[in-house]
Write a protein that binds this DNA or RNA. Structure first.
Length: 561
RNA sequence: GGGGGUAUAGCUCAGCUGGAUAGAGCACCGGCCUUCUAAGCCGACGGUCGUAGGUUCGAAUCCUACUACUCCCGCCA
């Protein structure tokens, strides 16, 4: 639609250049935008405002000339000059109604496009360390990351989702020591409790399972505890598997799937870390100081250099991070999006710097990052403090159990990742009726309900017949809905392009609102068959788009509520 | 002190990459169920878009400087 109007404008401009109204080198960007106010038509173009100066004419006067030079088109019933010099387009009824035909033809594919052209993209998200259950912050990452995957797939990318976890570092040692302490009957209050040990109750449960000799089946590993409280290595293996399984269950309950679980330890095992160090030394961006090996990340915009190998010989997390991302690059992901908490912001510059220092032809801004801000949880009007080590804990699973998966996902994905989010449990619990997700789902359920009612009345409805009567959609509310439906493909395209899943949620809220308004204002199941057929077609189209949109958010579209 | 982020209605947030009179939802007030699901609808109320400059036909949106809140600044991840 926009493309076709752009073409019309372009033809008009060409004609004006030929008439020497515009200079020959005129090459403006033609912007067509949707109008906010219906009295301004359906679409508008600001080209006359933009070109007024070079044309040395008043904007409105130039707009007149552009309109006069524009070829006629069946898409448009009329154009109008308005305001300071906008050209407003009024689409023909047939053009506006054709969106229903497209929705019926494309079904669940309506709104998708192939702009990704099958290129490989990886989205890494959650990536929680196996040192405790997933909390609400991880939930935000899961909701946003999974929705990003769906959006990218919907726009033609070949998407791979990945969960990276540290199964070898200092935090894991810390975990093993904490479990061992529990095995030996210590509690966090005990003076002999490990420094910075994990204090949560789940550590005690874990210790019991280990002592019992339980077998755990995690997504990527299966371990049986020996029950030997002195075998720290065995405890480590068991604890990691145990917590990985817990996280798997959380993710399953959240309907989030990963194609790959990537172990940090594998980077050591296959020599990738060593090779990365060697390469960095080779390219000359390293130096030794105070017994440690440093990478001169300041060469690439960091505010200070970073240690890669510690004085005592071990590596900092920074180095495996670089090795890991090199691995991603070598796997052929031309685009990688890392969804993480904003508290990891400082790694962005560092990882990119490390990759540049490798001199492997990796683009400068690679990889992309989507950082989400903190989630604050409120209960009884007070902030719930989350601290793994202190043991005060509200897990993602608690939240799903309390308010449901759909509501949890919707809440966590419905806001711009870059703004802080307050998750008010009391609101989500006691007033779940006011939850926006129900509002949207209800619109979908209503569109399904009408079909059931139709059958009860013994009436028949066929899509192909109904499409013959779309000209019956003459109510203002119906025209509003048609406009809303027509926006959807752009919403999806922009959400994917800008990594902003929340815009889909905003859109669905608006579409559902327009539907409810119409539903209350006009009856669908009327005696007049052409009108009835057309209205049901509209209702079905809305239901389809809501279902498509909710799916991009990982939220269900129930047929009955 | 350095860096990231945020600041829009009483509260929670949108604002389509610079457009026309800044929008929703809660909350509060007033209406609508013998009619396809009232988890709904309609109306009213509510704003110096943090402050001050700048860029231009035009700024909530872009730039600069302040202010407030928040996160990060480890040879932890």
């Amino acid at each position: 639609m926009k493309e076709q109007l752009t073409l019309l404008i372009q033809q008009a401009l060409d004609a004006l250049v030929a008439d020497a109204v515009l200079p020959a080198d005129t090459a403006p960007q033609i912007q067509i935008e949707r109008t906010r106010d219906k009295s301004h038509g359906d679409l508008a173009c600001n080209i006359a405002l933009a070109l007024a100066k070079t044309a040395r004419r008043k904007p409105r006067e130039l707009a007149e000339q552009i309109c006069a030079a524009m070829p006629a088109s069946p898409l448009v019933t009329r154009t109008e000059i308005a305001g300071p010099g906008f050209i407003n387009f009024f689409l023909s009824d047939d053009t506006a109604q054709s969106v229903i035909r497209r929705i019926f033809e494309q079904g669940t594919a309506f709104g998708t496009n192939d702009s990704g052209a099958g290129r490989k993209v990886q989205v890494e998200f959650v990536s929680a360390n196996p040192t405790g259950p997933l909390h609400v912050g991880h939930g935000r990452g899961a909701a946003v990351g999974d929705s990003l995957c769906r959006l990218l797939a919907a726009t033609g990318w070949d998407v791979a989702s990945e969960f990276y976890y540290n199964d070898a570092g200092a935090q894991i040692d810390n975990l093993a020591l904490s479990v061992q302490a529990r095995c030996k009957g210590l509690t966090p209050e005990d003076p002999a409790w490990p420094q910075d040990g994990y204090r949560g109750d789940y550590i005690a449960e874990l210790a019991q399972a280990y002592l019992r000799g339980d077998t755990v089946d995690a997504e990527d590993r299966h371990v049986t505890g020996s029950g030997d409280a002195d075998d720290l290595d065995d405890i480590r293996q068991f604890a990691v598997a145990y917590l990985r399984r817990e996280q798997d269950l959380d993710l399953k309950a959240f309907a989030v799937h990963f194609d790959e679980y990537f172990l940090e330890s594998s980077l050591y095992a296959d020599g990738a870390v060593e090779r990365t160090v060697a390469r960095l030394v080779e390219t000359g961006h390293c130096y030794e100081r105070d017994g440690a090996l440093w990478l001169r990340t300041t060469d690439y915009g960091d505010d200070k250099d970073r240690v890669m190998r510690k004085r005592e010989g071990g590596y900092t997390y920074f180095l495996p991070d670089v090795a890991y991302h090199l691995n991603k690059w070598q796997r052929g992901f031309e685009r990688v999006i890392n969804e993480q908490g904003a508290d990891h912001h400082s790694t962005v510059t560092r990882v990119r710097a490390g990759l540049q220092a490798l001199q492997q032809g990796i683009p400068e801004g690679w990889p992309d990052y989507v950082l989400h801000q903190m989630v604050t949880v409120m209960r009884d009007g007070e902030e719930v403090k989350l601290s793994k080590r202190a043991g005060s804990y509200l897990t993602l699973r608690d939240l799903i159990d309390e308010v449901g998966r759909d509501a949890t996902r919707f809440f966590l994905v419905a806001r711009a990742p870059n703004s802080q989010l307050t998750f008010d449990i009391d609101l989500a619990l006691s007033q779940s009726n006011e939850n926006p997700v129900y509002y949207i789902q209800y619109a979908h359920a209503r569109s399904c309900s009408v079909m059931r009612k139709l059958a009860e009345q013994g009436w028949d409805w066929q899509a192909q017949d109904a499409l013959q009567h779309l000209d019956q959609l003459q109510e203002e509310h119906e025209k509003t809905l048609l406009r809303e439906l027509d926006r959807y493909p752009e919403i999806v395209a922009n959400a994917a392009l800008n990594s902003e899943p929340h815009t889909v949620a905003t859109y669905l809220r608006e579409l559902a609102g327009a539907f409810h308004t119409w539903y209350n204002a006009h009856k669908m199941l009327v005696e007049d068959r052409p009108v009835r057929d057309a209205r049901i077609a509209l209702s079905q189209a809305v239901g389809q788009v809501i279902a498509n949109g909710l799916d991009l958010l990982g939220v269900s579209a129930p047929e009955v509520m």
